[in-house]
Amino acid sequence: MRRYEMISIFRPGLGEDEVNAIVENTRKIIEDDQGTVICCARWGMKKLAYPIKKEKQGLYYFYEYTASPAAISEIGRKFRIDDNVLKYLTVKIADDISAEELQAAIADNGKRHAAFLRDESAESAAVPEADAPADDDSDLATETVSE
């Protein structure tokens, strides 16, 4: 299993249900392929550096997981079909991950992301989205699933 991280940008006008549906779908693809979701964090609404599909803002989601290349291409295919996903980026972190490393990654994930989000919320205070910091807090307890 390879270790990946992925960022996806959703359309800002989406309802909670639609966003959750996409996130769950992604999780399902990973798990059907014997992968593991290490973390799934909501970065919240951010201003895009350039408009994508005529949208100036986007809802950022960050995932970290282990999966096989086949699952990655399947996720990419789904994202490209789905009009609500503005853009996505998958980056391979490691070619292989051992069971212990995986457990360690899951354990230390919450902390790392809490720190990252704190930096981000200070920076993105100018973004006209008042409820973003509140949302971040509720999602800090990142859902983790172990094998």
Binding site: I7, I9, K46, L48, A49, Y50, I52, G58, K87, Y88, L89, V91
Partner: peptide, 13 residues
């Protein structure tokens, strides 16, 4: 280049 792809940085500011 990765940051540009995911719209954190502009391609042409």
């Amino acid at each position: 280049k990765r940051a540009r792809h995911i719209a954190l940085l502009p391609y042409a500011g």
